[in-house]
Design a protein around this nucleic acid. Structure first.
Lengths: 161, 161
DNA sequence: CGAATTCCCATGCGACCCCATAAACGTGAG
DNA sequence: CTCACGTTTATGGGGTCGCATGGGAATTCG
């Protein structure tokens, strides 16, 4: 399994914890930075990079690959330039490194919960390389809009045939 | 863990001490010069390179990698050139090597506190290879500007696709 | 000898670890 | 096909440990 797919809705408990869907966890376990001395089946080190989505009331999340992608965005800019520092603030400064506990759960910090407007339930949405975390209500609206758009595109394609 | 990410705000006490966020400390402990005889879990030697940011009212800080990167910048300039001498002074002249004490704290010298306008609270901002130290108020403004800029840049990248 | 610095310890709170339960799922035997 | 059983997952709660922070004692420097 190397892609995050499908959607799941889990409960966010009083402590701010939420279970990561098992299917996503399996992907994450293959996408973790491991130090030189880390053992094979060592899952104590599994962690998730998570930050507010730039263009939606949701959170983006993923493993090392996602973090490396951010590195790539900045790699084009000269070292220690003012511009690079400024972009780094937004790209790295808002990122939280969330540890996955022995039961497969993470704790969502207040800052992240606020951005995505999360309350008792949260929806995990697989997007291939990464996944998003939504409030179920907001995600329903977004999904309907997306389907509509797909329908329009399909019509266009059909006409072209 | 090899990147500084996220932001934390800690208290600066009357003695000028401040706790380094545990997450950053973990990164620093993997990024310290160790003599040949240094033991594995030896954290007595952990220290931080810290100097005034060239273009902002903040401090830049990091471990050995940061120091090495500065060396790299200078290596590009011809030996004994005026440019190199000037830049050396600017980059090295204000660098402080701060020792991390047994409780994970550093002492910020007066010169550094003055440059970043630090008072009772200080904000640590992860920038990947290094981190910055800000006055919380000044940082809030910087962060907002940075987010806006990232949004612009994202649009550019999206269009290019 | 005074002042600043460094080391050491105390403490409150929050984060993390472990266990316990219950539901969902899958498997295989009857 | 159905039922029984083992496994995995989601979720709740409690206890413990680490972190951030404050203060005091020891030490060094001018």
């Amino acid at each position: 399994m190397l892609r995050f797919v499908s959607t799941f809705t889990n409960r966010l408990d009083a402590k701010g914890r939420v279970s990561i869907p098992a299917a996503f966890r399996a992907v994450l376990e293959r996408d973790v930075y491991r130090g030189p001395e880390a053992a094979e089946g060592d899952r104590s080190a599994v962690s998730v990079y998570c930050y507010p989505s730039l263009d939606a009331p949701a959170l983006d999340a993923g493993g090392e690959r996602l973090a490396t992608a951010i590195d790539g965005l900045l790699a084009g800019l000269p070292d220690y330039s003012d511009e690079r520092d400024e972009l780094s603030v937004a790209l790295y400064g808002d990122v939280h490194l969330l540890a996955v506990d022995a039961d497969g759960r993470i704790v969502l910090p207040e800052a992240l919960r606020a951005h995505a407007d999360l309350e008792a339930h949260v929806t995990f949405v697989g997007l291939g390389q990464k996944f998003q975390i939504w409030s179920p209500e907001r995600f329903a609206a977004r999904r309907d809009a997306a389907r509509e758009k797909v329908r329009d595109v399909s019509k266009l394609l059909a006409v072209k045939k």
